[in-house]
Design a protein around this nucleic acid. Structure first.
Lengths: 238, 238
DNA sequence: CGACTGTATTACCCGCGAGTAGGTTTTCCT
DNA sequence: AGGAAAACCTACTCGCGGGTAATACAGTCG
């Protein structure tokens, strides 16, 4: 009765699937790339739902209404599969950095733009894989590659922060720690966000950016008042 | 040559261990609780290093210089082990909420205090387990328990935020999103922090709190200047 | 039509690791 | 001393899941 891991279809049965290039019509056409991408996407969704280790290749195959060897026909192994999901996840973020490079706005605004795209990417179907692809699960070569890409993004954020401090659009701060805080908050979205939620990834990212930019401490007029807050009643009820 | 998962000692060999109640001297004394806690701690460290699924009970046993059945003598199964690590991880956070409850300072300062403890807990040896214990890896009962505790903490943060907005010590904001952002940034520490790093968990948490409180946008005098930043040279070199 | 290529399947192998049965040694108690 | 209980070990079982060998079928091209 404990089916938190294996889907009931794990071994043997291969039931109907969602939207896949195979579906009911038993066409055996020649759209290699399309099908390969469908495999990656199905894997990403499964990893997202149940985690990498709790997802078998049988599960993924079942999602697509095919058998396990078919999956292996399109991808060499499970690690490769995770790796591809990762790449699909980071690409939009790298694109965000490129898009923002030529903007003439202050660094803080460029950073905000990147963070919004970042957040949207993390909430995407590849978000889980991008954010949580553990290097311990992958062979050294892939692990290095992933680390390099992650580092590139981290450095990009730090640089924008440094530029912001220089052009005066960002409060002086430690770029490293600040980058960790920002990226961490956004990465964590992958842990709790599920599709068909009230907010889209972009909206969440926007809300986060507002928090980051403004900070918790009130600004301007209200500030001095808050410095000496009303003596609070200890042990508030409820 | 690919030893990213299995330690060389996985099957058969049980080499010497670090600090454990067993060590070389073959004492078979009656300190049940001490040893049980040692098992939990060893598991936490292993999970932290290699992840839950890449850690076998043989690994944990080897860390303690005992055999797998000995581990089972102190804990019923692997899931229970992860669960215990989780509990050990959350407890300090719950304590932080209790400690702060009677403070007479403004809500923002109470929140900051909680967040500092929170960050320190995440960077502790149980941090990984607390933060990343996936409900998909655990039986429904444990999963529910974990979710309840996590929710309790989330609600605690939201409440402090609401109180802060009310007493004027925190900028008006959406408590839910703000709580997610704060907790996310701190939780993420578990992904990159390793012991014997330059900063302690508490220091990192303090740095984060500073970022959160102040926000990215400059305050006071500098602010108006930053509103119309110097036209930046597009395509900055390097 | 028949051979060839690309696509998918059935039916397997096999190792790893969770979990256990049952025996052995140590310590404690009377 | 001697027996019971606690602590620990050797030596297994067994299923899950990654991966593969061999095969069947479907289009395509000569």
């Amino acid at each position: 009765m404990n089916n938190r891991r294996a889907s009931p279809s794990a071994a043997g049965r291969y039931p109907a699937a969602g939207g896949s290039p195979w579906r009911a019509s038993r066409e055996r056409r020649r759209d290699r790339e399309v099908k390969r991408e469908a495999v990656i996407r199905a894997a990403a969704r499964a990893f997202n739902r149940k985690g990498y280790h709790n997802t078998s290749l049988d599960d993924i195959a079942a999602q697509l209404a095919v058998t396990k060897p078919t999956v292996y026909y399109y991808v060499s192994n499970k690690e490769q599969l995770l790796f591809q999901c990762f790449l699909a996840g980071v690409e939009p973020i790298r694109a965000a950095f490129r898009d923002v490079r030529d903007l003439r706005t202050c660094a803080r605004e460029r950073l905000s733009a990147v963070l919004r795209h970042y957040g949207a990417a993390v909430a995407s179907e590849f978000g889980w894989c991008m954010v949580r692809a553990e290097d311990q699960d992958l062979p050294p070569a892939m692990s290095r590659h992933i680390k390099a890409l992650k580092s590139e993004i981290d450095q990009g954020i730090r640089r924008l922060i440094r530029e912001g401090v220089q052009d005066g659009s960002i409060q002086p701060c430690d770029p490293k720690m600040t980058a960790f805080a920002l990226a961490g908050a956004l990465n964590w979205i992958a842990h709790w966000y599920r599709e068909n939620q009230s907010l889209t990834g972009a909206e969440i990212a926007a809300a986060f950016v507002t928090v980051f930019e403004g900070g918790l401490r009130p600004r301007s007029a209200a500030e001095s008042a808050a410095r000496t807050p009303a003596r609070r009643r200890v042990r508030v009820a409820r």
